[in-house]
Design a protein around this nucleic acid. Structure first.
Lengths: 190, 190
DNA sequence: TCCATCATGTAAACAGTTACATGATTGC
DNA sequence: GCAATCATGTAACTGTTTACATGATGGA
């Protein structure tokens, strides 16, 4: 297990959070840090906390390296700052998206439920069944929510509605998980 | 967006990494930190780096709170330490597994590919197609690898082979992603 | 003899979270 | 008048990573 090579600080790759914030700023046009927060908080995949302490420092970093630029507006006593992606920011986003990074980028995502199944042996038979039904219920609830959002967004998904397409992917993932959980349940009881 | 309530340091919940390390130690019986590293590194979901700097501190923490215990063996000049889960550790693992934490625990996992699709609008049509075929190829490679591992493990999956069941879940997720990527590709070109 | 693997750790850096702090605006 | 939302940030903490450092064992 040799240590991996290191990139110089100045041109280091964007973290996924940085790239997402950059992406939101690029897509949603001039918007405040608060709007970015709201956007990330509303995401169906709550990977990040979207708290002020997460987002403000990220935008400061992005601004410092010139990937986003802020314009001040008067609001209250401190004013508000609206961010937009610069040309460099747009370019950076464009190079980030196809960046697969590791060769195993196509591997399965980290799923806390699947990870827990690995250690299901620690539970009694009753507890296992309970865990599985909880996981199924919870997954069904998320699935229903996603389908609601999909219906709300519009009758049919357009080719340029990448949020809708992404949501479609989430739905597919949850449906697959549900099928798998059923399979596991049948194997444990049968 | 009110701040969430905080847990006292002493009884804070295990992080997923801590729980996984505890789980591996519990499952694989007395084993060295190095073996835990190897196990995590070989996992199909490389969420963590599994470097020495990750695993050793985690085991130190787990040992400090009495969830694992080490027995020293003579090896080289420093000796080696073999870890095993204590009764408290096993209990803790048992309470961790069914712990769903957030109500949205059943939501979709964080998938870097899906996240990138959200910002596909930043690419040209040619770049989009290229991204999609890269993603499909990469996913197919991981899928083939997982199927190989599944075949290697044994002809049929036993009800108590939770690693095999988990792998089955990963395969289902990747198959779903592949179907979705095909759908996206058809929508973009059609 | 050399290399891969087994084995153990530490130190510094860093990203992200939690908690704290403040105040304006808008709608009921 | 009051509550929810909009808005901006900072400070401390902490978990994880990167890089560094060392040495034994076993097989080709």
């Amino acid at each position: 297990m040799p240590p991996r090579s290191q990139r110089p600080r100045s041109e280091r790759a964007l973290t996924d959070l940085e790239a997402c914030v950059l992406g939101v700023v690029w897509r949603d046009g001039p918007c405040t840090a608060y709007a970015v927060r709201r956007e990330l908080a509303g995401s169906s995949t709550p990977r990040w906390s979207a708290s002020a302490g997460s987002i403000y420092p990220v935008l400061q970093r992005l601004e410092a390296v010139g990937l986003v630029a802020a314009t001040a507006r008067s609001w209250g006593v401190r004013g508000k700052r609206e961010f937009a992606a610069t040309t460099a920011g747009r370019d950076r986003l464009r190079s980030w998206v196809p960046e697969v990074g590791a060769p195993e980028a196509g591997g399965p995502a980290y799923d806390p439920i699947r990870t827990r199944v690995c250690f299901l042996a620690a539970l009694t038979a009753v507890e296992r069944r309970r865990f599985l039904s909880d996981a199924e219920r919870s997954t069904r609830a998320s699935l229903a929510q996603l389908r609601r959002e999909l219906r709300q967004a519009g009758a049919r998904i357009q080719a340029d509605d990448f949020e809708g397409l992404s949501r479609l992917g989430s739905i597919g993932e949850l449906e697959a998980r549900l099928r798998w959980l059923g399979q596991v349940r049948r194997m444990l009881s049968g």
